[in-house]
Amino acid sequence: MIKFYSSLLLILFALTSCSKSYKIKGVSSVSSLDGKMLFLKVAKEGKWVNVDSAEVVHGEFSMKGSVDSVQMVSLFMDDENIMPMVLEGGSIEINISNTKLTVKGTPLNDKLYAFVEKKASMDARSEELGHKEAKMILDGVDPAEINVILTKESDQLSNEMNSYVKSFIAENYENVLGPGVFLMMCSNFPYPLMTPAMEDIVKNAPDSFKNNPLIKEYVSKAHDNMQSIQEHQMMQQNEQQAAMISQKQPAASIAH
């Protein structure tokens, strides 16, 4: 009996160990990547820290190792951030081409790149509005009518995108995809800012999301920036009001 339990514990330990092991197989059709070193990096305390690396040889590269916990990481070539991914137990497949970047093979990576693909299709629809505007102008449509039509479509698409991003993050509050995608969306701004949609995401999030160090740092910096912007706008308004008053004062004294 003791021997049976010992064997069972060894099997369980082996299974547990395998679940934390990762194996990455990458394929690249981008010829300029051949001979280059690729690095997996994780953000820690405001810095990118190397986790693993591999050389691209004849369009292929591979990595393997183990992780203590699931991590949101990025694949880098030198200092260039190529693509985000999740480092989790299992076999991970990366495909890099000039037109598409994909990661698949594990649950969270499949989920992440389903999101990336859908978000990309929405972005493409947004870009298409510009082409539609040019076509309508060439067709002689009244500019006022064009503005009404495109504003309505743009607002609808923006609401759809915000709703999709918010729901995806909310569904993944408790795993690395929630904070990871939130910060991906934030990276589109030139500096940390909080939109109403982002405020809703944080407001409705559980403590595990709010207390994520990267989220806390971003939100804190964003609120500081928003306060600075409001103070600057208020200063400008006060200066404009003071200028208007000073312009009126001579006319008032002459009339007197």
Rank of each mutant, 00 (worst) to 15 (best):
I215R: 10
A170P: 03
G65I: 02
K166M: 12
K132P: 00
T106K: 03
K216Y: 02
E160Q: 09
G59P: 09
L87C: 03
V56N: 04
L8K: 12
D123Y: 00
K135A: 03
M77K: 13
P192H: 09
E153A: 10
M184C: 05
G140F: 05
E60Q: 13
M244S: 08
K166E: 07
S6W: 11
V181T: 09
I215M: 08
A197I: 12
I11C: 12
V49R: 06
F4Q: 15
N211I: 13
M77H: 11
S158E: 12
V51S: 08
F115I: 04
I24P: 03
N162F: 05
N159R: 14
D110N: 12
G178N: 08
M235F: 13
L75W: 02
A170I: 03
P250G: 00
V70D: 01
M1F: 15
S17H: 07
T195L: 01
F209V: 11
V165F: 05
M198D: 07
Y113P: 01
P250D: 01
S32F: 05
P213I: 07
K166N: 04
S29F: 09
S97C: 03
V176C: 08
K44W: 02
N225R: 05
M235E: 06
E239M: 11
I254V: 01
Q227G: 01
A170F: 06
K166H: 06
Y191G: 11
G65L: 02
S154N: 08
L75C: 05
F13Q: 11
P206W: 10
Y173A: 10
V219T: 10
F209K: 15
N162Q: 14
A242S: 11
P213E: 14
G90M: 07
N50H: 02
M226S: 06
E171K: 15
